[in-house]
Design a binder for these strands. Sequence first.
DNA 1: CGGCAATTCAAACCGCGGTTCGATTCAAAT
DNA 2: ATTTGAATCGAACCGCGGTTTGAATTGCCG
Lengths: 221, 221
Amino acid sequence: MAVAPERRRPIGEGGRPPGTLRPERWNEIVDAAGDVFDEKGYAAARIEDIAARVGLLKGSLYYYIDSKEDLLFAIVDGNHSRGIAVVEQGAALESADPPTRLGAFVDRWIGILSANPGYAAIAERDLRRLDPERQAIVMDKRARIHRFVRDIVEDGIARGCFDAGIDPGIVTNNLFDVLNGISQWFHPARPLTYEQLAEHVRRFVLRGLGADPDASGTALP
Amino acid sequence: MAVAPERRRPIGEGGRPPGTLRPERWNEIVDAAGDVFDEKGYAAARIEDIAARVGLLKGSLYYYIDSKEDLLFAIVDGNHSRGIAVVEQGAALESADPPTRLGAFVDRWIGILSANPGYAAIAERDLRRLDPERQAIVMDKRARIHRFVRDIVEDGIARGCFDAGIDPGIVTNNLFDVLNGISQWFHPARPLTYEQLAEHVRRFVLRGLGADPDASGTALP
DNA sequence: CGGCAATTCAAACCGCGGTTCGATTCAAAT
DNA sequence: ATTTGAATCGAACCGCGGTTTGAATTGCCG
């Protein structure tokens, strides 16, 4: 998923077959950047830290990037792309009832969190430090994801699955706050796995909307 | 509430009557810092920005502070102190039932948000950038606040007010994620006031816990 | 083996921003 | 007036860290 390095040096400008290039080195670097950004925050993270984590000198990183912000964008945009994927998967369930669809969304979203711990936190924290153009790209994806959830909520209200008194905009925000907040306090281990956590969160959210949390089972294919 | 500047220069070391000192200048500066930190994040915020906002040159700020971090601490710790105050107010309601107590907490917490928009976001975002000692001070307050809510939840479960299947630790975290997330998307205005928002959030949370949101009214004195 | 390209090193550059410090201003007190 | 100290200025300092650049490597291909 990680967006390709895009226009890189003489990557194959007009000549060599684009094979044998930077294979997963790019992913290693993005992962390292993700760890460091998560730990220290984007602004406080040093290029040197990231480079050291993949066994390079800081200057060498610039063979792969044009600026520090490239790494932030790769992470933030990549994470949102995974969110879009979840939405597209969810669209396939349109025949199911709203609680089931929303429950599936929660499960899958937490699945993303478990696969990329820290990334969601970065996306929330440091989105604003992207330049306007890139920020717009991310905001667009974010809006589509948000819209997807809000539509389910509104549909649920219309069908009587959810309480009629709730405000779709507010609860949608609440939902994302709950989901994205998870990565900041949950550490999978001892007592709970991500799957068990998802179960609890799903019930909390569905109940919060006024739905019977037992009426819909996990609907992951 | 804003913690006094502590040990300042020759504030009154052994001489003049400690009157006629920096009165609310300190508060002005902290407020300015709050705005800038909220907008740009602590690391990206410049001392110069803060100084300019109160009509000073950046160097002049050091008459009031010893380091940039002093300002972060003033904001983060101050916000948590207000949280502690809410907890202490809430302790007076111990005779009420758990849903009422929790509802009151939600209302008052959102009251803090409305009075200090942005501060909560800073506290969540940049807590980790305080030095260990100060961080510990804040974490202690945070733990006490967290404990207060969790106790209510556990009490509610024991009394049958809340669903027995919920995990107190998880829902407590979920609750704070919902509350603190508010300051990042909610802009009081057109459609909704903070009071109306609090109403929605209170119902969402209480219902999420399995309680009847209508069983308890707002209980603010 | 020789060569070319992909990759990394090593060192310097350089601007930004936190911090320091002596000089200056202003107001109240003497 | 003169003194005194609070408050601010003005300018320099200085280290950190992002970025640049040209010189090594390394490894593949012929």
